[in-house]
Amino acid sequence: MIDKDKYKDVNPVEEEVKTLESPKNNWYVDEKTLANADLPEEEREWFSDARPQVVPPIRWTPMEKFLNWARAKSLWILAFGTGCGAIELRPLLTARYDISRFGMAPRPTPRQASVFMIGGYVSLKTLKRIVRSYEQMQGPKFVVAVCSCAINGGMYWDSYNTIKRIDNYIPVDVYVTGCMPRPEAVLSGFQKLQQLIMDGKAEGQNLYAEKFDWYKANQKKVIKDWNMPDYNW
């Protein structure tokens, strides 16, 4: 269960409300709905107005434990090579390291995937797609960020086109450092994630729902042409 009060001090929404006053950025005003105001009339109907909701785990612990076990043992990775980390994903998926031993498999569509592997640096253009893909994934969903670039900018700390810390934009469950991390390291990262899921600690989806405004503010700060709905389910 996520403690709501915990994020009170890190959630800068209150300040944001005061500082951002342009009509373009009034999406936070209404707590319940998302105003996809910038979209044309007919397009607005295509998109959901609902904010992401916190879905608490089932109260009956043994059942939740069982479900978590199932989730941990059947991790489907979204096949989205966002950076150079993707190059080690391939050996990982194939015969030498064979991640399928642990019930993991690549899944080409975000709808069905449950793990998002951020493979290193994330350029602005990709960040937009990452946010979309991440929001399209169905919860519980997890993010594993590999490579140092995703942690603190890595090699591209002074680049104008890459973001430095992916956890400002989507919640990350597990980090693996390295440039490139070897497949074994990534594999250990996934195993760590499995452990976290089984312990019920990997609640990134709920975190995202709770700190939604904070994440959105961060995302909109860097993505200058925000031409998509605020939440893509």
Binding site: S48, Q53, V55, L67, A70, R71, K73, S74, T94, A95, R96, D98, S100, R101, G103, A105, R111, Q112, S114, Q138, G139, P140, Q205, W233
Partner: peptide, 28 residues
């Protein structure tokens, strides 16, 4: 998996996958 030179998932993997799919918390 054996043909491809790897070990492959456990035999009961399809069951876990189904369970996992049903255990999804959100859906559209």
């Amino acid at each position: 998996a054996r043909v491809q030179g790897r070990i492959g998932p456990p035999v009961y993997q399809p069951f876990i996958d189904i369970k996992k799919s049903n255990a999804k918390r959100t859906g559209i």
